[in-house]
């Protein structure tokens, strides 16, 4: 019995590389259960390093994100699908998006920007690209660092939780996503975090002032 899905996600989380074992879009239930459990452990380890109190693990969104990343890679490698089929293969998250869901999904979704970049390299007019971009626009915590339209980003949920808010700011600074830092919702918060040491932490940001 192979657990290809689990193995791929395990590789992704531990070695930050994707290995596809077979052309396989159907994921078995026990494989899903394994991934949920594995991502729970990963979530707990990561949350040790979170400021304030971490939102709880949301297994559904973590699994959904893992599937998105897995399927996106499959599509990238074995393209046999028409445009219409792609949206079915990469469904939207059906449950309400909460802070828990954002952090849990990020475990895998944070790798989606690299897959998106790869897709753009292969074919800039690929149908896959707008689909992935719309996912990253909705789950924009995972999309920090890549040039997106940055329109209609929902910050209300992000800023409703101090932990997620600080993590978001940290990632914007870490990835030096200047465009996002200059959004009116972000600017003051980024400045507050950098404090007197903007030059030291992020020199380019200072220059634009």
């Amino acid at each position: 019995m192979h657990h290809y899905f689990y193995n791929t996600i395990y590789q992704l989380r531990t070695k930050e590389e994707i290995i596809l074992y077979d052309k396989l879009f159907d994921i078995k239930e026990d494989d899903e259960a394994l991934v949920k459990e594995f991502l729970q452990i990963e979530f707990d380890v990561e949350s040790e390093n979170h400021p304030f109190s971490t939102p709880k693990y949301n297994a559904e969104s973590a699994l959904w994100a893992a599937k998105i990343v897995y399927t996106a890679c499959q599509i990238l490698l074995y393209r046999e699908h028409k445009e219409a089929e792609l949206t079915d293969l990469l469904p939207a998250f059906t449950q309400p998006i909460t802070t828990e869901a954002i952090l849990s999904a990020d475990l895998c979704l944070r790798f989606l920007p690299q897959i998106l970049a790869e897709a753009k390299l292969i074919d800039p007019e690929d149908y896959l690209i707008p689909i992935l971009e719309s996912i990253l626009n909705q789950w924009h915590y995972s999309g920090i660092g890549i040039p997106l339209s940055l329109k209609n980003l929902d910050f209300e949920l992000i800023f409703s939780n101090p932990c997620l808010e600080q993590l978001y700011i940290d990632r914007v600074i870490d990835k030096k996503d200047k465009k996002r830092a200059e959004l009116p919702q972000m600017l003051e918060k980024i400045r507050a975090t950098l404090g007197n040491y903007t030059e030291k932490y992020w020199n380019e940001f200072k220059k634009s002032d």
Binding site: N49, I169, D170
Partner: peptide, 8 residues
């Protein structure tokens, strides 16, 4: 420290 920004 428990609530600090990672960059600090």
């Amino acid at each position: 420290i428990s609530n600090a920004s990672a960059i600090r």
